[in-house]
Design a protein around this nucleic acid. Structure first.
Lengths: 135, 135
DNA sequence: TTGAATGCAAAGACTTTGCACGATT
DNA sequence: AATCGTGCAAAGTCTTTGCATTCAA
């Protein structure tokens, strides 16, 4: 959370309660929330906050590389304050989105690069199935 | 293409020129087209075909497991007549979406399953970078 | 013939934008 | 005090739906 304040100041952007609050939600969850979810979470504490502000804040954080945007195949995006590319797994039953430890993907990128001839700059690995609670 | 006719008949759905045409586009491309792209491709030959019909046909094919829906992180979906789960790579420069040979992902699913406790039913692996032509 | 599919237009979901008011520096 | 950000509402993009007409079987 302090890093956000620092980055915003460095870049000459204003440090507003709304921006802090949006980032704070992402920083303290592993749930990969949607815009709507972030908005709902903030409603009790910031009843005047608008959806537009959530969208605008996320857009800014994205451009500053403070959050990453995910799309696990839904018609909407999810957000993650962990900007490291790392694999995700989605429960097809309850919809939760968990992280997957990425040790086993070590050197996968290099293999893909040499196979395809691409210069690889990012990746999103999504797995789908039933989580331990749902199966 | 013949398989589509067969499946539609088996399931009691009508075999229409529009359905055949939509599937045919997907069957003969490796470009992972969007709905709009499919629609545009068909315009010259089927000037009366509507976007709604493309959407409805794809929805049906999806439910029959004749095509799969992809989302590489855009605000729209892409479609693929190859329904095998297989990795994709997107050029961040020109936007093309290519397939990646999936040999190297052999047994990845099992590893993820044992790490996460999920029962895995599907996967989407997306890599991003610059294609040979763009880099 | 008859029910299902098409195609148009309207509606819906998510996201972006414009602008006046308000807050940060 | 000046400027940037917020929040409302309107607009934009992609997708879905309703319904009368048309078509496959």
């Amino acid at each position: 959370m302090f890093d956000v304040v620092k980055v915003l100041k460095e870049k000459g952007y204003k440090v507003t309660p709304q921006r802090i609050a949006v980032f704070d939600v992402l920083k303290h969850t592993k749930a990969h929330p949607t815009v709507e979810a972030i908005y709902n979470k903030l409603q009790p504490t910031y009843p005047t906050m608008s959806l537009a502000t959530v969208y605008k804040s996320l857009e800014m954080f994205k451009s500053l590389n403070l959050v990453q945007e995910l799309n696990v195949g839904e018609d909407k995006f999810r957000y993650d304050a962990n900007v490291n590319p790392h694999p995700h797994i989605t429960c097809i039953s309850c919809g939760r989105v968990d992280d997957v430890d990425d040790e086993m993907f070590f050197n996968l990128t290099e293999q893909v690069a040499s196979k395809t001839g691409y210069k690889i700059t990012g990746q999103q690995l999504y797995f789908y199935g039933k989580c331990p609670e749902c199966k």
